[in-house]
């Protein structure tokens, strides 16, 4: 099968990030491949290694996104498209879905994989928006992806259990990071990635987004708690008392 994986570049949540004057300030040197998208790339690699096929990548984002595309190429994807948007553009999921839909209208598509959500916005909207725009059947929050002939068998994590669904391409699946552990690119992979085709072009923006961020804030501080250290039986009893008479929850 031919896989097209939509990947997003996001700030590394493990790096220091601050709010200053309502804006997020983060180290621009620490932008990473969205973890959920890394799982989508891994899933495509596992399936193409077992059954044959190829993997295209697409990323919409500023110039710096190219580094993230190279990283996913180094994992083993075959080629990439970079839809370049300006650094300042504050775009929402709906706008990215339009850019991606136009891209796929041009290039064609078989199986599109997305992450279940982007680690920065935690929106989880783009995948299903894109599927609807392209008129594709889709499954979200996949924790397992298998190929049976020309059918994809997807296990999705639902509210009370898991649903096993079958669908045939063209289709779209959004991936949970609970699906696999994405591989780390090897040195050889990194060298090869430098020579893989990467088509970069300016994206034509579809007009002002209808959702936007007005500003960022820190979370309200939690009151500092109390630490109980000492004899286990003792602190266990203390806790039971505190929950009863102070916190009044039991």
């Amino acid at each position: 099968m031919k896989f097209s994986v939509c990947i997003k570049q996001v700030p590394d949540v493990a790096a220091p990030i601050q709010v200053r004057g309502g804006e997020l300030v983060h180290d621009t040197g620490r932008l990473v491949l969205n973890a959920y998208d890394a799982s989508a790339v891994e899933a495509a690699l596992v399936l193409t290694e077992a059954h044959g096929g190829e993997i295209d990548l697409v990323l919409a984002g500023p110039q710096a996104g190219q580094e993230t595309l190279r990283k996913a190429l180094a994992m083993g994807a075959d080629r990439a498209t970079h839809l370049i948007v300006s650094e300042e553009a504050d775009l929402d999921a709906a706008t990215y879905a339009v850019l991606l839909a136009r891209h796929f209208d041009e290039t064609g598509h078989e199986v599109i994989l997305c992450g279940k959500q982007a680690q920065d916005t935690d929106a989880g909207l783009t995948g299903a928006m894109l599927a609807e725009k392209l008129g594709l059947p889709y499954v979200t929050n996949a924790v397992r992806l298998e190929q049976e002939g020309d059918t994809l068998v997807v296990t999705r994590q639902g509210d009370t259990g898991q649903e096993v669904l079958a669908l045939t391409p063209p289709c779209l699946v959004t991936c949970s990071n609970d699906m696999n552990d994405p591989r780390i690119p090897t040195l050889k992979g990194i060298m090869q990635a430098k020579r893989k085709p990467l088509d970069a072009r300016e994206a034509d923006l579809p007009g002002a987004p209808r959702t936007r961020v007005l500003g960022y804030e820190n979370l309200p501080e939690r009151e500092p708690g109390r630490v109980l250290d000492g004899d286990p039986a003792d602190i266990a009893r203390q806790l039971a008392n505190l929950l009863h008479s102070e916190a009044k929850v039991v």
Binding site: Q119, D122, Y216, E217, N218
Partner: peptide
């Protein structure tokens, strides 16, 4: 809405 693994709050607007 909480963003970035609920590390921050984003004030957002939709029209």
């Amino acid at each position: 809405r909480p963003v970035l693994a609920a590390k921050f709050i984003a004030r957002v607007e939709a029209e």
